[in-house]
């Protein structure tokens, strides 16, 4: 990545009681990039996010936002961050508009025009003056996004953002996040359980387990192509090709162009081929591979 990171987590550690919830986390997030944050339940996703927005104080380490420390320079650094932590909890007894006014007052330089602009962006013009208690979950999510965007943040943190949105809403949301990432160079950090969602939305994926960062990968590299080959005798195939056994066949990584040649080779060796089919290794497979079936945290730490 050529540009400077917007956010840097430096040796971030959180100890609660005797337990290390977050263990020495290092991560950089870049402008214009959407980074997914994955991990099984209890891995420390929420704790990490809470430390990134100043709701929790790290035991050691720091979060830098555009080079400003969250611990020592809170107001300055957090002013560049837009946040939706879990479900956006709004003041239910006030209208959506009053909620936005409320949050706008807590930032410098958010004008009335900006509020109206954001309302239009999330498509809430028709119901913005109704009480939040009458809103559906999807509308609350939209309002949550609106409040996070008010002050034109450089960095957007979203915790489970598509929770409660219908398929059309999710798609719209995805397209929208893409566009602000690309047009305004906003760095976006999304935590979600919906793996397929993350796969579609993100450029990079960070996986966390037991408070430790396991892996950071670009999504392109995840989309390697695999082929499933069912043939007999399978042992002979294994000698010729490297791959892993799956059911009765063999899973081999190769490009589409290599397939005909491979078939030719197998036939030449006198192997009987029953089936060759493309096999997409989903993010889910990779995720489970990485996290070892996603057991709840700390089980193999003790």
């Amino acid at each position: 990545m050529d540009s400077k990171p917007v956010v840097e987590l430096q040796n971030l550690t959180k100890v609660i009681g005797q337990k290390k919830i977050i263990d020495n986390l290092n991560l950089s997030l870049y402008p214009g990039q959407i980074t997914g944050f994955l991990g099984p339940n209890g891995a420390g996703k929420t704790t990490t996010i809470r430390m990134m927005v100043g709701l929790m104080k790290p035991t050691s380490g720091d979060v830098l936002i555009e080079g400003k420390s969250l611990t020592t320079d809170f107001e300055e650094s957090i002013s560049k961050v837009g946040v939706i932590v879990e479900n956006p909890e709004m003041y239910k007894y006030m209208s959506g508009y009053k909620n936005l006014v409320h949050f706008a007052r807590m930032h410098d330089g958010v004008t009335k025009e900006r509020i109206d602009e954001v309302i239009a962006q999330v498509g809430m013009q028709n119901r913005i003056h109704e009480k939040v208690s009458t809103y559906s979950l999807g509308m609350r999510q939209r309002l949550g996004l609106a409040q996070a965007l008010l002050h034109r943040p450089k960095f957007l943190i979203l915790d489970e953002p598509t929770n409660g949105l219908d398929p059309a809403g999710i798609r719209e949301f995805r397209v929208y996040l893409r566009s602000i990432a690309e047009k305004e160079g906003v760095s976006i950090f999304v935590s979600s359980h919906m793996l397929s969602e993350i796969e579609l939305m993100c450029d990079r994926i960070a996986v966390i387990q037991n408070g430790q960062l396991l892996n950071v990968e670009e999504t392109d590299t995840i989309n390697e192509t695999y082929y499933y080959i069912e043939a007999s005798p399978i042992e002979k195939v294994e000698q010729l090709l490297t791959g892993e056994r799956l059911n009765n066949g063999l899973l081999v990584q190769m490009n589409k162009e290599e397939v005909p040649m491979m078939v030719g080779n197998l036939v030449a060796e006198g192997i009987e081929i029953f089936a060759i089919q493309p096999h997409t290794k989903t993010l889910e497979d990779q995720f489970l591979e990485l996290t070892g079936g996603g057991q709840i945290a700390e089980s193999h730490k003790k």
């Binding site: 927005v53 100043g54 709701l55 809170f74 107001e75 300055e76 957090i78 002013s79 961050v81 946040v83 932590v85 879990e86 479900n87 956006p88 909890e89 709004m90 003041y91 239910k92 949050f103 807590m106 930032h107 410098d108 409040q147």
Partner: peptide, 14 residues
């Protein structure tokens, strides 16, 4: 109790 504290404290205000 309403969870709005998260929204209130993740602002550039001490």
């Amino acid at each position: 109790s309403q969870g709005t504290i998260k929204m209130l404290l993740s602002r550039p205000v001490s």
